[in-house]
């Protein structure tokens, strides 16, 4: 019986293939997960691939803001993420969520930056102030 491959090993291979522009890699990965009955791990493997890509200089960041961003602000955020993560390339997915009330939240595979009003209120509540 072959040894179960760790998620980290699979993710590292996939990240390398993505960087090498192997267009079929996502389909191959999906087939592998179905074949090895590991489809439940798909989300975690995607996070691991993003993490592996980040260590190679490509960061996938999910940005949530309360109001629509201007192009100049978006460029500034991209610059901030690149600077904070030592990334050479930043892929940003921006969404708006009015419940944040204000500020910005950035999620990368292994890090988070929460400067939202909602987050601050939560901290206040957790600290029972």
């Amino acid at each position: 019986m072959s040894k179960k491959l760790s998620r980290r090993t699979i993710a590292q291979y996939c990240a390398n293939q993505i960087i090498a522009k192997d267009d079929l890699i996502i389909k191959k990965l999906a087939a592998f997960l179905v074949d090895s009955n590991r489809t439940r791990e798909a989300i975690l493997i995607v996070r691991d691939i993003e993490s592996a890509l980040a260590s190679s200089g490509t960061v996938v960041a999910r940005v949530v803001v309360a109001h629509e961003l201007q192009a100049s602000v978006e460029a500034e955020i991209k610059k901030f993420i690149a600077h904070s993560t030592d990334a050479t390339k930043v892929a940003m997915q921006v969404t708006t969520d009015a419940s944040l009330l204000g500020g910005i939240s950035i999620d990368t595979p292994d890090h988070r930056f929460d400067d939202t009003v909602q987050g601050k209120l939560k901290t206040l509540r957790a600290n029972k102030v």
């Binding site: 996070r47 904070s84 292994d110 890090h111 988070r112 930056f113 601050k120 901290t123 206040l124 102030v129």
Partner: peptide
Amino acid sequence: EDLRRAIESLEKTEGLSTVGIVT
């Protein structure tokens, strides 16, 4: 004074912090 300090500490937002998720 406690409340003032708590609010002041909220003004400081550190950079990216390492996070994981519960599976």
